[in-house]
Computed example of a mutant assay.
Amino acid sequence: LDVFSTEPLPANHPLWGYENVIVTPHCSSVYEGWEEKALDMFADNLSRYRRGEKLLGVVDPRRGY
């Protein structure tokens, strides 16, 4: 999930507690090549996830993004 009626998603929102929900940031800007960059970032994080490594760009609800 990446878009909510209130953003950032409040720290006490129930969605943060679900193990089967992943909250991701969304990008409100568009630039040339953003689709390829986004796909590269996703593929990299998928590989990291499968290897049990730390993911890049993880949302930190304490920081608000």
Rank of each mutant, 00 (worst) to 15 (best):
R62M: 11
S47E: 08
R48L: 09
D40I: 10
Y65C: 02
K54P: 00
S5P: 10
L9P: 05
H26K: 04
E32I: 05
T6S: 14
P61F: 09
D44R: 06
C27D: 06
P61M: 08
L39Q: 13
L15H: 08
E7R: 05
A43C: 08
G57R: 06
V58F: 03
W34L: 03
L9R: 11
S28N: 12
R63C: 05
L55C: 00
P14A: 13
D60N: 05
G57D: 14
V59S: 03
P25L: 03
L1T: 06
Y49T: 11
G64L: 05
N12W: 07
V21R: 00
V21E: 00
D2I: 04
G57A: 05
R51H: 05
P25M: 11
F4I: 04
A38F: 10
W16K: 03
H13G: 00
M41G: 06
V23W: 05
S47P: 00
K37V: 15
T6I: 15
N20W: 10
E19L: 01
E35R: 13
V3K: 12
I22G: 09
A43L: 13
E32H: 05
L15M: 10
S5V: 09
E32W: 05
Y31G: 15
R63W: 02
R62W: 09
E19A: 14
V23H: 07
W34I: 14
P25Q: 06
H13N: 15
C27A: 00
Y49W: 11
E36C: 03
A11C: 06
R62F: 09
L56V: 11
V3T: 14
V58K: 12
Y49S: 14
E36F: 12
I22M: 10
P61W: 07
R63D: 13
G52S: 06
R63T: 13
L56W: 00
E19V: 04
W16F: 02
M41Y: 08
E19F: 00
K37F: 01
D40F: 04
F42P: 03
L46F: 01
V21I: 14
R48G: 07
L15W: 13
V23Q: 08
